[in-house]
Amino acid sequence: MSIGLLALQGDFREHRATLRRFGIEALEVRLPQQLAAVSHLIIPGGESTTIGRLLTRYALVEPLRARAGHDLAIWGTCAGAIILARELRDTKHGGQPTLGLMDITLRRNAFGSQLDSFEAPINAPVLGPTPLPGVFIRAPRFESLGPKVQALATLPDGEVVAARQGRLMATTFHPELTDDDRVHRYFLEL
């Protein structure tokens, strides 16, 4: 098993710090040959328009699509979830590239501006009874989940904030900004 962090832009160093806590040294992935060396890939939080543009420009889209879900597990946090989604609402003017790997529809910046960014407890039964600390920053919202997609976690009002489709996982919050590493451990088992 070899863990990669898509290091085009965003908070990949925070993910690296979390993984280090349980002795895993993750590889930074910016080019196709670096991607070839990993079995698990985390797409971090950041700006989805920036990450999407660089993915296309540096020929990462095709190798990602070819391997995703088969010999490559992928987890996207926030912007990373947007990159994984099949359909987007409120994209930038003229649309924006995504990998379109998970059968989910996400609405970008769906809670409002930065002033509406928030923290709230998250229920994730697969990770045990203790709620996860949820940090939501200009977060997207799940608008729909396809038939093969399983909801993993919800806000107290029942809104889905994490989902899984086989070896692909999307969270609209940021476990890497908290001390709770259960989502990272769960991903390593994927």
Partner: peptide, 16 residues
């Protein structure tokens, strides 16, 4: 709009 979300947005801008 907690301290964590305010510092957090800057963390999301990193490398940009």
């Amino acid at each position: 709009s907690t301290w964590k979300t305010r510092v957090g947005l800057a963390q999301m801008l990193k490398g940009g």
